[in-house]
Simulated scan of single mutants.
Amino acid sequence: MGLICIDELTEDDLERMHRLIHDRVTLNSSPGLVLGLTQFVGQKTPSAMLEDFRIDKAHANDFRRVAAIGERRWM
């Protein structure tokens, strides 16, 4: 599965992303994940950062492999 993050992500953006990840992981046990971060700026608010943390915690072991494409600061 692939996700492209552009500009600043809001809490709503991350909640939609979390639902998408959950649905895909349910359909395909241990999929691979590619993150496109070349245009990513960061999370817009502290609540968005918290939602990002929730995604990381909930799905830490759900992916077979993860590849991130972007600037060194996001690795």
Results as ranks from 00 to 15, higher is better:
L3K: 13
L3S: 05
L3P: 02
I4S: 11
I4H: 10
I4P: 04
I4D: 14
C5K: 09
I6Y: 08
D7G: 08
D7I: 03
E8M: 10
E8S: 04
E8I: 04
E8Y: 14
L9D: 02
L9M: 12
L9Q: 11
L9W: 02
T10F: 03
T10Y: 03
T10A: 02
T10Q: 03
T10I: 13
E11P: 04
D12T: 13
D12I: 14
D12A: 14
D12F: 12
D13K: 01
D13T: 01
D13V: 01
L14F: 01
L14T: 00
E15D: 06
E15K: 13
R16W: 07
R16E: 15
R16V: 04
R16L: 09
M17F: 09
M17Q: 14
M17E: 15
M17I: 11
H18L: 05
H18Q: 14
H18G: 03
R19K: 09
R19T: 09
R19P: 00
L20E: 15
L20R: 15
L20Q: 15
L20C: 10
I21A: 04
I21D: 08
I21R: 12
H22Y: 08
H22T: 07
H22A: 11
R24I: 06
R24C: 07
R24H: 13
R24M: 10
R24K: 15
R24F: 07
V25F: 06
V25S: 02
V25R: 09
V25Y: 08
V25W: 08
V25E: 03
T26D: 10
T26A: 14
T26E: 12
L27K: 15
L27D: 08
L27Y: 05
L27S: 13
N28L: 01
S29V: 12
S29C: 08
S29G: 08
S29H: 14
S30D: 11
P31I: 13
P31Q: 12
P31E: 08
P31W: 05
P31S: 07
G32F: 14
V34D: 07
V34G: 00
V34S: 05
V34H: 06
V34P: 00
V34M: 05
L35Y: 05
L35T: 00
L35I: 00
L35F: 01
L35N: 02
G36E: 02
G36Q: 01
L37D: 02
L37G: 01
L37M: 11
L37R: 03
L37T: 01
L37E: 09
T38P: 06
T38C: 06
Q39C: 07
Q39F: 07
Q39M: 11
F40W: 14
F40I: 00
V41T: 05
V41Q: 14
V41P: 03
V41W: 06
V41Y: 09
G42F: 02
G42A: 09
Q43L: 11
Q43F: 15
Q43V: 13
Q43T: 13
K44I: 06
K44E: 04
K44V: 05
K44S: 07
T45P: 01
S47L: 12
A48P: 07
A48F: 09
A48R: 13
A48Q: 10
A48T: 10
M49F: 06
M49G: 04
M49C: 04
L50Y: 06
E51N: 02
E51P: 03
E51I: 03
E51T: 07
D52N: 10
D52G: 08
D52I: 02
